[in-house]
Simulated assay, not measured.
Amino acid sequence: MGDSFSKKENRNKKAKAKQDKAQRMKERKLNNDKGKSLEDMLAYVDENGNLTDTPPRETRKTEIDSKDILIGATPRPPEDPIRTGIINFFNTSKGFGFITDDKSRESIFFHINDVSEPIKERDKVSFMREKNAKGFNATEVKKVGPGTGTKTTF
């Protein structure tokens, strides 16, 4: 009795898969890098940033003094810790307010405990910025200019 069509089909598929596997193994052996010298495996980068197999010419090299190499970010000049601004909101009953910074134009929170003299809205003040979890706080708030708001006392 002969084999059914599906059995013949499966046998042919297995034989084809075995033949393909042998062919891939043969190709891998031909393209294997084992046994090649280091020079054969090296790649170089030319002056345009392209990969090439020829080493760069020695004539184009320029000497650079190691002291001229700067690593890291460019240092910023230290900024003045004392800033100025105008009080744009002040709640006397709750004891807090906000100062609009002259440099950054951002609104900075301050508390009445950080104020050294009586202040009112629209007063020009000097202060120091202090970073906290919610942003910046103004500390050491001092009046530097006259204001036009209503007078408050402590």
Results as ranks from 00 to 15, higher is better:
115 V>L: 04
124 K>A: 11
96 F>T: 06
88 N>V: 07
35 G>K: 04
33 D>N: 15
143 K>H: 09
7 K>R: 12
89 F>E: 13
146 P>N: 14
73 A>V: 13
86 I>F: 00
15 A>C: 01
120 K>W: 03
98 F>T: 07
92 T>L: 10
93 S>L: 09
10 N>H: 13
123 D>N: 09
150 T>L: 09
133 A>S: 14
145 G>C: 02
125 V>A: 03
110 F>L: 05
152 T>G: 06
152 T>Y: 10
4 S>Q: 07
6 S>N: 15
119 I>R: 10
66 S>W: 11
139 T>P: 05
82 I>W: 02
126 S>F: 02
59 T>E: 15
105 R>L: 06
45 V>A: 00
57 R>A: 14
66 S>A: 14
116 S>L: 11
101 D>T: 07
75 P>A: 13
123 D>T: 04
113 N>F: 00
143 K>L: 09
23 Q>D: 14
127 F>W: 03
20 D>Y: 08
131 K>W: 03
123 D>M: 03
118 P>T: 12
88 N>H: 09
86 I>E: 13
127 F>S: 01
9 E>D: 07
6 S>L: 14
93 S>W: 07
150 T>E: 15
76 R>K: 13
59 T>H: 13
20 D>N: 15
103 K>P: 00
7 K>C: 06
37 S>Y: 05
33 D>S: 15
150 T>A: 11
68 D>G: 02
78 P>Y: 02
61 K>R: 15
113 N>V: 00
148 T>F: 07
24 R>Q: 15
153 T>L: 07
25 M>D: 15
16 K>N: 13
1 M>L: 10
62 T>I: 10
86 I>A: 08
51 L>K: 11
139 T>S: 03
76 R>Y: 07
110 F>E: 08
116 S>E: 15
128 M>H: 06
60 R>W: 05
96 F>V: 02
4 S>L: 02
66 S>K: 12
42 L>N: 05
64 I>S: 07
3 D>P: 03
46 D>A: 01
54 T>L: 05
43 A>C: 12
85 G>H: 06
47 E>C: 03
60 R>M: 11
142 K>W: 09
92 T>C: 03
24 R>D: 15
62 T>V: 08
128 M>N: 07
145 G>D: 05
84 T>W: 05
80 D>Y: 02
1 M>Q: 13
56 P>K: 09
96 F>G: 01
70 L>M: 13
5 F>I: 10
13 K>H: 08
106 E>W: 00
2 G>N: 12
